[in-house]
């Protein structure tokens, strides 16, 4: 995926994997089941208001806590096209790349983008544009190696092609 565009759903700092997908739902790994409960412990309305292509914008340390891949899977299955945060917890970062959920780090975007804005992201150039305000921000583009994994739609395909 080279670009994304959608409406922003905004959260604060330290959004942990226990609120992204609570452990009581981990007995399944079915993406559509997980999506039904995504974010429910901090935002009961998420599952009902999210629509395909939406973008999450959050503060620092997004995805901290457990290594459950169910967290990025739930977010991806909810239709989220990209997560932009100040910083990501490292396991969540890895998992997102490995399953092909685009993510990007950018301080300014968090500071300036409001909930409900329409935002577009150009992954190759690392450009985030707030279409509502017209402002542009520069995020971190991926190192080539990670971009290859994303382009292969995940680590396993990347290895298979190897």
């Amino acid at each position: 995926m080279q670009s994304a565009e959608g409406k922003v759903i905004r959260y604060g700092d330290n959004i942990d994997t226990d609120v992204i997908i609570p452990a009581r739902y981990l007995a399944t790994s079915e993406p559509s089941e997980l999506a039904k409960h995504c974010m429910e412990d901090i935002d009961r309305s998420f599952a009902s208001r999210v629509s395909k292509g939406d973008i999450i914008v959050a503060g620092k340390n997004f995805g901290c806590g457990s290594s459950r891949e169910h967290a990025p899977i739930a977010i991806k299955a909810s239709g989220i096209s990209c997560v932009i945060a100040r910083t990501f917890a490292r396991i969540f970062y890895r998992n997102s790349i490995n399953i092909g959920l685009p993510i990007m780090e950018c301080d300014e975007a968090y500071d300036k983008i409001s909930d409900g804005d329409t935002v577009s992201v150009d992954f190759e150039r690392g450009i985030i544009k707030d279409e509502t305000t017209g402002e542009e921000f520069r995020g971190q583009a991926f190192p080539e190696f990670m971009q290859k994994i994303i382009d292969s739609e995940g680590l396993i395909n990347y290895i298979n092609r190897g």
Partner: peptide, 14 residues
Amino acid sequence: TGVGSTDMAAGMAT
């Protein structure tokens, strides 16, 4: 270090 399930799968295979 902790990783996710895809890394685990790749680790088990390779």
